[in-house]
């Protein structure tokens, strides 16, 4: 299932990035370009972190950026920015190398993606392989 959503176009690999806001913006760019989300959704995701804190860093090295859809999401979708060097979301140990962007259109339809993401990301070996992956092909091979 994750393989369907995370097409090669929706994966970006980058050495490093200056700050978390740019990380969210870059991670969202494939969804923006394919019109699955509107620009306002990206702004909302960034504002959410400013307002609520680095809660999107759900586990060491893993962030799942998301927000309320508020009409700015056209299609349930997922993208991934994989950095080679982590970016800090806040002081403390809130840093991430895997930055997912989840776009939900309501409270239900994205739960399948989340279920699969949670299963994959609770497997430490798999997370290690994702962090070390150097190509989109390698990343896609690790997905269900």
């Amino acid at each position: 299932m994750l393989k369907e959503y995370l097409s090669e176009n929706n994966i970006i690999i980058k050495e490093e990035i200056e700050d978390w806001e740019k990380a969210i913006a870059l991670a969202s760019s494939p969804l923006l370009e394919s019109r699955k989300i509107e620009k306002g959704y990206v702004e909302e995701m960034i504002d959410s972190v400013k307002r609520l804190g680095p809660y999107i860093v759900i586990s060491p090295q893993i962030a799942i950026a998301h927000s309320r859809p508020n009409g700015m999401v056209n299609q349930v979708s997922l993208s991934l920015l994989k950095l080679n060097r982590p970016v800090n979301f806040s002081a403390g140990d809130y840093e991430a190398t895997l930055i997912f962007v989840l776009a939900a259109i309501d409270n239900e339809q994205h739960l399948g993606i989340l279920r699969n993401l949670a299963e994959m990301l609770s497997d430490e070996e798999k997370v290690r392989q994702l962090i070390n992956a150097q190509s989109k092909y390698e990343i896609r091979n690790l997905l269900d």
């Binding site: 799942i64 998301h66 989840l102």
Partner: peptide, 16 residues
């Protein structure tokens, strides 16, 4: 409870 009730709270619910 999470920020939006869309993401992490559902993951925790699964694990509970």
């Amino acid at each position: 409870v999470c920020g939006h009730g869309l993401g992490s709270s559902f993951m925790i619910e699964m694990n509970i």
